[in-house]
Design a protein around this nucleic acid. Structure first.
Lengths: 109, 109
DNA sequence: TCAACATATAGATATGTATCTATGTACAAC
DNA sequence: GTTGTACATAGATACATATCTATATGTTGA
């Protein structure tokens, strides 16, 4: 389980405004000005958020003339859901395969 | 789309140590001392992380004598994956159903 | 070339948070 | 009751980050 990449995605997603940006992009490509319309914050703040999303591998950018077009990375869409599934299902790493040192497991639950 | 609850979960999950705690709990219930064994940080720090996970609805706690037993919330496991799916698939909210004001959409992609 | 527009960068500030030490609380065993 | 154990709380500190204003960069059109 690669905690680092997954944690980077989660951290980028955890900001409510960025979550909304992802939701907006889930329908397709948008330029910065279209995204900005949906928020109260300033243009540099959007620029900051888009950079965070790119660094996390969530969004890719493609410049067309003056405009910056943003798209959700297909590898993110599939990868994130796969890692989520891997996280939440019991696997080899879990403690039940290891020796217990704490007494609490000897008590009757 | 309830950004708030989902964002609370994401924020709680975004910390690498908490991510590891969730992975450990994915196999079943564990007490605090068993979890603490897997980390370098102090006991109060674990206590802090467990409270964050509980406030996000990710983990529930049940006290048995001296010991605090932590379990992944079943509602979190299903709910988180549902909200993730809802976020990443195109839905009614997306911009393509609204009027564009930005000129970028008139250019040939 | 110049002006207008779209976006990025720099630097400052305020707020959030992960961590620690010290201490408190609750329970168990003697 | 006293002592030891498991965990929580309080308060402090260091670091991250979301936001702003001001400015720079790059592109288009006149």
């Amino acid at each position: 389980m690669d905690y680092h990449a997954y944690s980077l995605m989660l951290k980028a997603m955890a900001e409510p405004n960025r979550l909304k940006i992802i939701d907006l992009l889930s329908c397709g490509t948008l330029c910065a000005c279209d995204i900005l319309e949906h928020f109260e914050f300033s243009q540099p703040t959007l620029s900051h958020h888009m950079k965070v999303l790119q660094n996390a591998g969530i969004v890719s950018a493609k410049k067309e003339g003056k405009w910056q077009h943003y798209t959700l990375e297909p590898t993110f869409i599939t990868g994130f859901q796969e890692m989520t599934t891997a996280l939440l299902k019991a696997d080899d790493q879990c403690l039940c395969h290891e020796a217990k040192s704490c007494d609490c497991s000897s008590t009757t639950l």
